[in-house]
Design a protein around this nucleic acid. Sequence first.
DNA 1: ATGAAAGCGCTAACAC
DNA 2: GTGTTAGCGCTTTCAT
Lengths: 332, 332
Amino acid sequence: LGKARIDEVAKVAGVSKTTVSHALTGSRPVSPAARAKVEAAVETLGYRANSLARGLRTQRSLTIALVIPDITNPFYPMVARGVQDAMGDAGYQVVLCSTDADPARESAYIEDMIARSVDGLILGQLSASLDSFSELVERRIAVVTLGPKPPLDIGDQVMGDNRVATTEATAHLLRAGRTRIAFAGAGNETGPAAERLAGYQDALLSAGLTLDPALAVGSGYDRATGSMSVEQLLDAGVAFDGLVCVNDLSAIGALDALRQREVSVPQDVGVVGFDDIDAAELVRPRLTTVDNRAYEKGTVCGRLLVQRLSGDLTGPSRSIVVPGRLVIRESA
Amino acid sequence: LGKARIDEVAKVAGVSKTTVSHALTGSRPVSPAARAKVEAAVETLGYRANSLARGLRTQRSLTIALVIPDITNPFYPMVARGVQDAMGDAGYQVVLCSTDADPARESAYIEDMIARSVDGLILGQLSASLDSFSELVERRIAVVTLGPKPPLDIGDQVMGDNRVATTEATAHLLRAGRTRIAFAGAGNETGPAAERLAGYQDALLSAGLTLDPALAVGSGYDRATGSMSVEQLLDAGVAFDGLVCVNDLSAIGALDALRQREVSVPQDVGVVGFDDIDAAELVRPRLTTVDNRAYEKGTVCGRLLVQRLSGDLTGPSRSIVVPGRLVIRESA
DNA sequence: ATGAAAGCGCTAACAC
DNA sequence: GTGTTAGCGCTTTCAT
C-alpha cells in the first residue's frame, strides 16, 4: 500500500494507463464501468499520483509560492491564511517562503520556486533585484504583489490605503476636539511611513490646521520609536493632546512612555496606532488603531492568482486596494 | 535566458548532458577544462536544473514539509524559522503547511506531501488518523514530531518539559513567600495542560503544602479562561496570593480580571504564565512566564531531520527534550 | 574522463 | 470510449 504506480492501478482495474489517468483527472470522458473499476483499484492500492511526474509532464504543479519578508511578523501569517483559504478550494497548494528581508534570499527563493515549476507567485514585499523579476516575466509566471507598486510591471497588485486610513484615524482624534496632534515615526524614509505621514497631514490641513514641524517626530517602526517620540515631545515642552503613531508597536511604546511620565490616555492625550496586531487589544488602555486587513488582502491575492491561472482574468495588470478600517478602542 | 534545458547547456559547452550533470552535482570527477566550459554555459544561458525532473529521477526532492496546526499561533512561526535556519544550510527547502487543527486537512497535507516526494516531515501537532502515519513508515520517510509522544513510533521526537518548567514557575511564587497558589486552566482534558497542572502540584507538594481542590479552576487556553478563573476564585471567597496560569493568554485574561476587581499584581497576587508570547512583555505588569523556546525546538527538529536524511544518524527513534526557561518580569 | 541510452511516473497526441 | 506510444528534463548505469 502506498507506493503503487499508475501501471499497477491499470492492471488491477483491467484498463489502460490512459483510462486511469483520464478517470482521475477528468480530462476526457470515461465510461461509468471503467471509472468504477479504476476507483476500486485506486482504493485497494491506496494509489496517489506522483506529482513530480505529473508536473514534469503537464508543466503545471498546482503549487504557488507565497514569498514573505518575515514570518514572525503577525501580519504575514494572517495573509498566508487568507491566501490558503482562497486557493485551497481551487486545488492549489501554497508554499510559504520567509526571506528574513534578505534580498539575496528572496532572489534565491524565487529562482528555486521557478525551478520547481510553481504556477504562480505572491510576493509579500519586494526587495530582490530586478533580475529575478525579468525571469518571471519571460517565463510568463503569474505574479501578484502585495504592497507598494513595484518599479516593473510584473503582475497584479494588491495594496492598502495607508494614506486614507491614516487620515481617518487622525480625523477621529480631531472629532474629539483635539487640535495639537503629533505624529510618531515621521522620520522614516522607506516603507509605508511616508504615506501615513501624508495622510495625517491631509487630515490636519482639511481641518484648517497648520502643520507644526515640532509635532512630527521619531523614526523606526518599533516600540522604542514610540517611547522616544513621546519623550522628545515632552522634553522639548511641545504641547500635544493627540498622537498618531506609524504602527501599533510604536503606539505601544508611546503608551509606555506616557504612563511613565504620568500623562493619562485618553484624557490628556489620545493615541492611535496602525495594523491592529493582537497586542493592540491586550495593552491598557486598549489601542485604537487601523485594521490593515491582512486576511482579506491574502484572500484577494489568492483569488486574483486563481483567476489569472485559470484564464478567467486576462489583460493588463490590475491594482486592487483593500481599505483599512478604523478600530475604536480605549486609547482615543 | 531562463528556460534553458540541460541539452542546450551541453551543446553550448561542447560536452554531453552526462558531463553537465556531473559537473553540476559533483557526482563524479570532471576535468577542470570541461567544468569551466559547463560553468560558462550555465552562466550565459541562466540555466537552472528543473527540480521536478531531477526529483523524479533521483527520488529525492531536497524538500521537507513542516506541518503545523495554526500558523497564526506565534509559537509556530518561531519554530518555522528555527527549522529553516537549521535546514537551509544543508540545502533543504522547507514547505510550511498549516492545517488549522483540522485532522482531515492534516491527513490531506501529509498525503499530498508524500505525493510530492518530500524527503522528510516535521509534524507540529498530531491529530491525523494513524492511516497516514503508517504510510509514512512504509515509505520510510524521515519524520520528526514536535510535541507529546505519538501513539505510534514514527520517528524522532522533540518535546518540551511542561511539568518541570511549571514546577519551577510555581517554585518562584513559593520563594516569594506565597502559600495559597491557585492554578488557572486545571480543567483541560487534552494538550499540555495536564502536565502543567502536575508540575504545579509537584511544586506545592515538595514545599510541604497540601493541594486544595478549590484552588484548581478554569479550563481552556484563552483569555476568558484566565478572567473566569479569577472571578470564580474571588466570587467563591477563596483566598489566594499566587496564580499559575496554563498559558500566557489565560494569564493576560487573569491580569485583566484582577485589575477590574482591584487586586494588585504582584503585591496581592503573583501571576505566572507559560509560553512567553510577544504580548507577555507588552502587558502591564509585564508577565513573568516560561519561555517555551520555539526557535530552539525548530532548530533541534531541523538538525535531527538533516542527520537522519544524510544517514549520519541511524538506529531507533530519539527523544529530545528542550527545557523551558523561566523569564522573570513584573507580575511575580 | 567522457558519452549513449535507458528510464523515473505520468499525460496527451494520435490512432482505432 | 479506449489503448499505444512518445516524450516532459533529468540522472545514472554501462560501455568506452
